[in-house]
Write a protein that binds this DNA or RNA. Structure first.
Lengths: 193, 193
DNA sequence: TTCATTACTTACCATAGGTCAATTTTTATA
DNA sequence: TATAAAAATTGACCTATGGTAAGTAATGAA
């Protein structure tokens, strides 16, 4: 069994156990692509054609708000990545995606994904499980925004991704937390004290 | 074709067109239940056993934060309703659900839902589409929290649900917007001026 | 209908975070 | 490795929202 298959199985295992053959079928559809640091993968007002899984590196999902970028997701190894809203609707959205480092991703095209969803029982199930896990993730982001201060959210982010500071520019981390770069700077200063 | 079937078809139609027979099969699994005003449907730290669709009335999904409730979703006619996180994982969560008015809902039990997902091709697809639409909804809530002031979010909510003020207590609307009741009161005062 | 309870509003001051401008630090590139 | 550009920090000041306490209005149970 190849490396990609094993990796895919490990990503899905917490959500859904299937025979390794299922993951192998899925993994065979995945192609590999590498992006440069700061490379834009999807541009605003375009339609997403691929679903990505990050193998090595990190990337963000953004939208432009007046005069600055707002990051709605920070993605790392084994995370799904892409503008799912656009992928699912196959319509352009204002969202754009960028990687923060040189990043290797696996991807499946929209048509391959739909073929998988439509023509295999496991595919349909994988699609549902994946969408459910994305929902759960978004709901927890919403709850954090509604119930925690920026300082607490920053500390939580650090504990989940200890090396995030070395990997992702602070200005993007700030926008992900819902604050501006200056405010994050003050929070960081306060914490080290 | 009965009323419930037609209604279910109308709810799903924007996302997915299927023959009416498919919706009929689904609708046949749905039971009907009525809750009193302010009745709690699911309690904190319990496991959700049902997926609801609101037929008439309104309800909210909450969690308790220190000394006050936080509303993470306000649901109205034709909305899905329930603690999906708990439903999907079949584990207890801190979330609880309450209805604001006398409310009639359709519901399908977890076991019937899984049976539908596992044993019918359309069922699997409906499950995916439903999860996707929940994800899209949560993502738009996150974007609103990250990019708009409470005042703008309040105005948007009013334009989407013009009668919300008559149907949902302001304190819950405030917590949904991420502010306290006093702040919403100030915003409302400012707007009428 | 009355009374108690809950919801909503107001006013006060406190605080988290925003804005702008200047400065320092880091990074990218010639 | 020098230089320019970008990122991060800092300070001064401002604004939206929070916390508390009090008052008023609406609601529900007897």
């Amino acid at each position: 069994m190849n490396k990609k298959t094993i990796q895919i199985k490990e990503i899905f295992d917490p959500y859904y156990s299937a025979p390794i053959e299922v993951w192998d079928t899925f993994a065979k559809r995945l192609k590999t692509v590498t992006f440069n640091k700061n490379e834009e993968i999807k541009f605003p007002n375009t339609t997403e054609k691929k679903l990505y899984i990050i193998n090595k590196g990190s990337a963000g999902i953004f939208l432009w708000k007046e005069n600055h970028p707002v990051c709605i997701d920070l993605c790392f190894e084994n995370d799904f990545f892409g503008d799912y809203l656009s992928l699912l609707t196959q319509k352009p959205t204002p969202l754009y995606t960028v990687c923060f480092e040189e990043t290797e991703m696996f991807y499946i095209t929209f048509s391959d994904l739909m073929d998988l969803f439509e023509n295999s029982k496991f595919g349909a199930k994988i699609g549902r499980i994946a969408a459910e896990s994305l929902f759960v993730h978004k709901q927890s982001q919403q709850i954090e925004l509604l119930t925690q201060t920026a300082e607490k959210r920053y500390k939580q982010l650090l504990s989940k991704q200890p090396h995030i500071i070395q990997r992702v520019p602070l200005k993007y981390i700030a926008s992900y937390l819902g604050i501006n770069a200056e405010s994050l700077s003050r929070i960081r200063k306060k914490i080290v004290k």
